[in-house]
Each structure stands twice: as structure tokens, then as C-alpha cells.
Nucleic acid binder design. Structure first.
Lengths: 204, 204
DNA sequence: CGTCTTCCTGACCAATTGGTCAAACTCTTT
DNA sequence: AAAGAGTTTGACCAATTGGTCAGGAAGACG
């Protein structure tokens, strides 16, 4: 069966349940740590039925990962030359932080994949992702040359935005262990990141 | 056998080989992803011989993790009231970056553990680690109150230092995929982070 | 209603994996 | 060199896990 294009209502419902359960499982335990039994139990289906919809564990993982990738690399596209450069960058950081809050499972799955050496998406990183980052880095370089922002390495700026924002999803347990439960710290993080990038980018 | 206190030369050599191989394996594949066969092969020992030195896979992992924790939480201790506050924070970030360069395996193992929900070290996070962070946060708060640095959330400052520096170890593949191979980017990262934190902390 | 397709399951399988154990080997010590 | 401790291994085991398969149940449709 090809579950990438559901044709009936039952297929649609079940593939959605599988992918959601799989996102849960894979993001918590990694590819190897998650089992088909876990996923099928969480999806409310039998294991053979899982494999009726997807050819293999790998196939499930790849489809989940593919969905995550689309979602994950999207916000960067919106970093454009439209408004004030500093506001653009700050807004991008806020958008990424929002993603970490709204989609922690996706963030963790991505982190897991990269940690294991990105065996399935290395070509995407070295291809489309690199290309987009190069593009945005050139844009930022242009702002620096025009004197609109401080002289700053655009690649490491982007890396720092990725890391600081995703930290609140990937290291969630650590953050909560230190700050206590609840979600209030996201407000503080937003304010902190705004200050961090505004001060780093403001020409002096 | 209790491998935590080697008594003979053979024990010393073999436990060291096992722990090193285990650090390799666990940091690359996580606890579940790594197998005793992997570890024993890399250590040049038979599997039963591994289990002569360590009671179980879990015991190996715990000992490796314990070593990593000691190493990992150390640099923060050196953040003191000795010199100029801004230089102190910048130096801390540089130290952490240096750790990411020197000990990427340790960084990844730690990241893996936290990602999986820190099942084995949650008490350390909520206890000693939280305590030390609280302490350092109070120190930084004091600097702000004295007008020596900008008004900034000390907890999120520490989180951002952790995330930006560890990113170069944990997301190494992504960084290299975008910047190309080699280690030259660590110099650029050091310069970037210095600028980032200097500008964020300088009172305006 | 009957038929054809889609959906689902119990039973089963081979491979992997963490771990055991008795026996053998080697090194140290007296 | 003999005793005794420390070290190593091959053979084995039970549990888990990804995956298969033949057949049955349930929908869709003319």
C-alpha cells in the first residue's frame, strides 16, 4: 500500500493516527528506540495492520520525518528584505521560538535525526537547506554592507537562532527542571531573545 | 565485578577501553540504539567479557554518563565575581564552545539523555544543577542591579550559552553540511559569540 | 443481494540482543 | 612449581522485534 496518498476515509483516518503515534514514539525514543508495537498500540491498530498501511518501520519514519522537514524549514523562507532588517531577524527568532512551543515533538524528532548523523536527510541539508541558508546569509551580508545592521557573521547568527529557540523544545526537561513547571518561561524567553538579537544587530 | 574502582592493570586497561567504546557507541546511537556487540567489538573484547567488568548495559551507560556529567557541569563553576562581569560571561561562553570542540561525544551523549527525558539524571538536574544555576543567576542579577551589565534574564542567558555552544557539537553534521568540512568555523563561532554576548550585556 | 475491493487479524518466523554459565586459560604470589 | 585469584570464552537462552501470510470480516457498489 502507498500511504502517502490516502484514497478512502478509513485510510485517511488510520494513516493520520499512525503518523501521529509515530511522531510521538520516534520523537521520544529515536528511530531505533521506538517499536512498531509502541506505535500500533498508540494508534489503536494491530501491528500487521500498521504494515498494511506502511511497507516498513523505515517507511513510517521517513514519512514522518518528511512532514517535519517541510514544517521545520519553512519559517526561514519568510526572512526577506521587506521591512527593517533588525525587525526581520527578531521576528524570525520569535517565529522559531513559537515553533518550539507549538511543535516540540517535531523539534525533537529533527534533533534526534541530526544527532544520529542525519543519515536520511544529509542530501537535503547539503542541498536545498544549504542553498537557502546561503541565500539568506547573502541577504544579511547585504544589510551589513549597507550599514543597516552591525557587522556580524550571518551563518553563525542563523545557527544561534536555531539553537537558542530549539533548546526550549529539545531540552525542555532541563529547562523545566531549573525553572519549574508551566509554560510561563516562553514569555521570558521571547523577551530575552528579542533583547539578545536586537542588541547584537544594532550598529554602534 | 565493580568496575568503578579498577584494582589491577588489566582491569584499568579494559574498563578504560570499554568506557571509551561505550562513549562512542552511546553518543552516536543513544542508549537503546547502541548494542553490547558494538561496544565489545570496538573495545576489542568478547561480549561475555564486557559483562565480566560491568553488570549490565545499563551499568556501563550509567558510568559513562556519570563521567560526562562531571565534565559537563564543571565550567559553570568558574563563573565567579572575580573580574569584569562581561568578560566573565564571555569567557564562560568561550569555555563552553571549547568543550563542544574538544568533547563532541560527551556533548551528544548528554543531549541524547536530555532528549529522551533525562530518565537517569532528572534528580541531578532538579537538585545540584538547579542549585548551581540559581546561584549563578543570583550573581548575574547582582551585576545588573549594580548597573555593571544590562538588564537581562540570567536564566535565559545561561540557556542561550548552553544551546549556542553545544549546537556546534550536537548539530555538527548540519553545521558542516552548510559551512563545509574542516574546523575553521570554530574560530568564527568564537568571534560571533563574543560579539553576541558582549553587545547583549553592555549597558546602554 | 451478490460480488469485488478494501481492511484486518492470529499465528508464525528469523534475526537480534541482553545476559548466563561452566569450563578453561593466565597471571601473581608464595 | 603449585595454589589461588583474576581473566576469557564458546555455547546457550529467553525475550524482543520487524516482518510475513493465509484467510476472514467489513464496506462499497452495481
Amino acid at each position: 500500500m502507498d500511504a502517502s496518498a490516502p484514497r478512502t476515509r478509513i485510510q485517511e483516518k488510520n494513516t493520520a493516527a499512525i503518523l501521529d503515534a509515530a511522531l510521538d514514539a520516534f520523537s521520544q525514543a529515536g528511530f531505533r528506540g521506538a517499536t512498531l508495537d509502541d506505535i500500533s498500540r498508540a494508534a489503536g491498530l494491530s501491528k500487521p495492520n500498521l504494515l498494511y498501511y506502511f511497507a516498513s518501520k523505515e517507511a513510517i519514519y521517513v514519512q514522518v520525518l518528511s512532514g517535519v522537514l517541510d514544517l521545520w524549514l519553512d519559517p526561514l523562507k519568510e526572512l526577506t528584505d521587506d521591512g527593517d532588517p533588525i525587525e526581520e531577524v527578531v521576528a524570525y527568532a520569535q517565529r522559531k521560538l513559537e515553533m518550539a512551543r507549538e511543535y516540540p515533538r517535531e523539534s525533537r524528532l529533527f534533533a534526534n535525526e541530526i544527532l544520529q548523523g542525519a543519515p536520511r536527510i544529509l542530501d537535503i541539508i547539503e542541498g536545498p537547506l544549504k542553498q537557502m541558508v546561503d541565500e539568506k546569509a547573502a541577504l544579511i551580508r547585504g544589510w551589513t554592507r549597507a550599514g543597516r545592521i552591525a557587522d556580524i557573521d550571518p551563518y553563525h547568527l542563523i545557527f544561534s537562532i536555531w539553537s537558542t529557540t530549539q533548546h526550549y523544545a529539545d531540552f525542555d526537561i532541563q529547562v523545566r527542571g531549573i525553572l519549574g513547571p508551566g509554560n510561563g518561561h516562553f514569555e521570558d524567553a521571547a523577551a530575552f531573545l528579542e533583547h539578545l538579537y536586537r542588541s547584537a544587530l544594532t550598529p554602534r
